Simulated scan of single mutants.
Amino acid sequence: LANTPLSKLRSKWGVNGEVIWRVANGLDDSPVTINTHSVQKDIGNGMTLPRDYTEQWEIDVVIQDICTEVCRRARKKGLMGSVVTMSLSGADFDRPTGFSRQVKLQDPTNITVDVCKTAKQIFRQHWDGQPVRRVGISLSNLSNAETYQLSLFEDQEQKRAVDKVMDDIKDRFGDIAILRASSITSAGQAIDRSNKIGGHYK
């Protein structure tokens, strides 16, 4: 088709003949757009655990580690979210356990302690005590982090300052340069995950 004279294709198929010839020759006058992807709808992270977690405190540690990463990603993108979604499941695919629930926040945020507090509330409300093997948390209904509502009752600026310091240290010295104490307990996965790429050891 590419080597067939254009006039011959036009006479046989009309306008479609030219379309076929142009496609065969890789010719396309369509404008090139810089961003062909839709606007990001959520920022999330999930973790498959190395064993069944059966204690509330263990799962709290995992929630904290995941929220830290989700909020850090949101801040890097200059975004915050007003919906927190949490899901967890067990290891037995034949007898599925767990849940997926979301909560709408009063104001959008990317502050780690606030997102973590909401995720833990969802967990405590819906966990039935069954062993947990996978936990996922996401922020959605995203908006620009440059504009946010000031609170008269909570020191949000101090929380943002803490997050910024932690982000700066991690950006400069690595993901485990600074950790919460809970992350170094037997339930914490942050150190182990730092030695992996895509869930596999480097």
Rank of each mutant, 00 (worst) to 15 (best):
P108M: 10
L9P: 07
A177Y: 03
L88W: 14
N3I: 02
K196L: 00
V165H: 04
R22C: 08
S7P: 04
W21I: 09
V135F: 06
K202Y: 01
R51Q: 07
I122A: 09
D192K: 03
I197V: 12
V84W: 11
A91D: 02
T97N: 13
K41P: 06
L152V: 02
V84I: 13
G14N: 04
A24L: 07
G199L: 00
V70K: 02
L150G: 13
M80I: 10
R95L: 09
L105Y: 01
S38V: 13
I34S: 13
D42K: 09
F153N: 04
S87E: 10
S140M: 05
T97R: 15
K202F: 00
Y148E: 05
W57T: 13
V15C: 08
K12E: 12
I169H: 06
Y201M: 00
W13F: 15
D92A: 14
A181R: 01
K196Y: 00
D107V: 01
L150K: 15
L9G: 05
G90A: 12
Q158F: 12
Q125S: 15
D168N: 10
E157N: 13
D192R: 08
G14K: 07
N144T: 06
A177M: 03
I59W: 01
Q40W: 02
V32W: 07
G90S: 01
S151Q: 05
V162E: 13
K117Q: 11
D163V: 00
G136T: 04
I197F: 04
S11F: 13
I122Q: 05
N16F: 14
H126N: 09
I184C: 13
K8I: 11
S7V: 08
I43W: 01
C116R: 09
Q130R: 12
G174A: 01
S186A: 15
D175H: 00
L9I: 06
I66G: 01
A181P: 03
Q130T: 13
V70I: 03
L142A: 09
D107C: 08
D168E: 11
G90K: 04
Q189V: 07
L142M: 03
Q149C: 09
